[in-house]
Design a protein around this nucleic acid. Structure first.
Lengths: 344, 344
DNA sequence: GTATATTACGTAATCGTTTACGTAACAAAA
DNA sequence: TTTTGTTACGTAAACGATTACGTAATATAC
């Protein structure tokens, strides 16, 4: 058992050559003789030499680590985004550090702080619902750590962004309900602050207007957590009105699943009496009864694209070149199931 | 815009003192005068001095980063484990790097490699199904990187382990079915290699034996992926036999959900004709129809405990003290719903 | 044969911080 | 007065690798 890890020095001494020569050999630099190089490689192999990455990171002031902050890990959409991020980062030689904000701004600050200690080369973040101030992120940028925002972005911040076309997704979902002959379409929206639910609301509104349907303000309900429970309660309140809707477009799948529960309890048929469509195509959506139609987001791809943009910015930063920010809008797609189509 | 980040040197020069004095002041070391210390703190504040963690990590040869390798992120159990890991690690001042093996041994190797480059201080791993060789992990240990295994562990490896009592959980689940008066209980098991499904099978067997029920070998079915699809197909085959079971204990929730689908399709009643119980209490289990009874695992707690043990080992390693490995067995609990209890 | 280029090294500096060690200045104890 | 101790610093070395620079030895050109 050797007392310390093998260093270049150990190899150099054993071969009677200088440390830089060993370095040059192992790094396949030009200024080194073939004979020496061979001997170095052999000895390095024999001694199980492993580079000390601490020293290299220190020298280059880079870690090859990407930080990722998302609101929750236990979440179908985000866990898929992370999955995409990790796979792509690995291909590019980067490791991924993860942090969840639990939808709390304070927690997000802590995450940034933790990451700064770990010297991340760049950050991918999906904002907490109550994050309005982005000083912590701009501070990172000033310290030459590029930031890419995914899905829940801040429109005023200058950075690359990956979003998906929530507007169009919502438009198509609503259009689909209209195509089924539905006239009184309700919408359960979210807190409207993360850009996402606001866009979904806008898309809904546009479709209603474009198809010359009546817009019923009392059929628009707002939830804060867009959870299953809220969806359930909100739908019950919708069904208690004088004139109930004949379709509901929910801003998230959990809300829609809550809505289904409420509708079934009231003895109404889905989709004959009320059709239901959600957003994000959670895994569980295919197994509820009836299976839920939804708007599918390219979660995995979004993660992948975020890494691409981030690494591009990391490289620009390293080379001291001017920064270019891009905003990528990814397309959604409709996944139609029985909650709108019925049983054939 | 300053050309470089502020260093101790900058502060030292501006105050006309030596670099070590600045270091001593900022680290609240004893050998430093109060007056000097005050001046240093003031200037550091004014210049927005930030420690260069690369240099510190390099000096101390530690990163305060924990590596985590799990088979899949998009998985209810594992994402909760990760969640527990991240929360606890943050409290202890550690960051978390994540990697998913996608249940592939080769991928696991890559993950370990990536992590070694990032100089993790310790590793928490849940093995891929086809990982039989643990040389890569023992190699880490030899390089003084402690390894803690969670849930899917290798019994021959010498390390701390966090598992949950799959045996007892399965025993209780089976006992519950028996208490409902079920006599012909089927079991859908997994690949039997990760210890987990094997233990579940053993627990099932013991309960059957203890309660003097007949053990029907043809009611034991094996799935490799323990997925919804497999659960569905396997159950169909069970229902095609001469004598069908009156209850099914599935090694995972997805399998159980597939089973429910098959049973419903055959026009049989749950739980009157066939009761169904799963394992792990996935979030989706509460929303299927009928809601699925399951064995709940303390996922979040397991992650938390893993971090505790790991950091203990990291500290022992740092102090060159002898290593102590612990195995923690966490208790499961039954979550009973309509798939076994019926509608009251 | 002299000038120039090329090859294959070694020396020294560097990255930012911490720590072991030495010491001047002063105070307290003998 | 001399000795011993304490305080508050400075100097130098160290962590491991890379890189700018210099140069001796050899090869090539004229």
């Amino acid at each position: 058992m050797s007392k310390h890890n093998i260093r270049l020095k150990d190899i150099a001494e054993e071969l009677g050559i200088s440390i830089p020569s060993v370095s040059r050999a192992l790094n396949n630099k030009p200024d080194i003789g073939e004979h020496t190089k061979k001997k170095v490689f052999e000895l390095a192999e024999k001694l199980h030499y492993q580079r000390n990455q601490f020293a290299i990171n220190f020298k280059n002031q880079e870690s090859f680590i990407i930080g990722v902050i998302i609101p929750q890990i236990v979440h179908h959409f985000f866990s898929n985004v992370i999955s995409g991020i990790i796979n792509e980062a690995e291909k590019m030689g980067y490791g991924v550090m993860l942090y969840q904000s639990n939808e709390s701004y304070e927690s997000e600050l802590k995450g940034v702080d933790t990451f700064q200690k770990s010297m991340i080369d760049g950050l991918i973040i999906s904002l907490a619902d109550n994050t309005f101030n982005v000083d912590h992120l701009e501070n990172l940028q000033e310290h030459k750590v590029p930031v890419v925002m995914v899905d829940k972005v801040n429109s005023s911040m200058v950075s690359s962004k990956i979003i998906c076309d929530d507007y169009k997704g919502a438009y198509y979902a609503t259009e689909h309900l209209i195509s089924l002959g539905k006239k009184r379409i309700a919408h359960i929206t979210g807190s409207l602050e993360p850009h996402t639910t606001k866009e979904r609301f806008k898309g809904f509104e546009s479709a209603i207007r474009d198809y010359k349907l009546t817009f019923y303000p009392n059929l628009i309900k707002k939830c804060n957590l867009v959870s299953r429970e809220e969806g359930y309660i909100t739908t019950l309140s919708l069904l208690a009105e004088n004139e109930i809707p004949d379709a509901i477009f929910c801003a998230t799948d959990p809300t829609a699943i809550g809505a289904i529960k409420a509708i079934k309890e009231k003895g109404l048929r889905i989709p004959e009496d009320i059709a239901v469509i959600g957003f994000s195509d959670w895994k569980m959506s295919s197994i509820v009864d009836p299976p839920l139609s939804s708007v599918s987001q390219p979660d995995f791809e979004m993660g992948k694209k975020a890494v691409e943009l981030l690494i591009k910015e990391i490289q620009l930063t390293r080379d001291n070149k001017p920064m270019k920010h891009e905003t990528h809008v990814m397309e959604t797609s409709l996944v139609l199931r029985e909650s709108t189509l019925g049983k054939n």
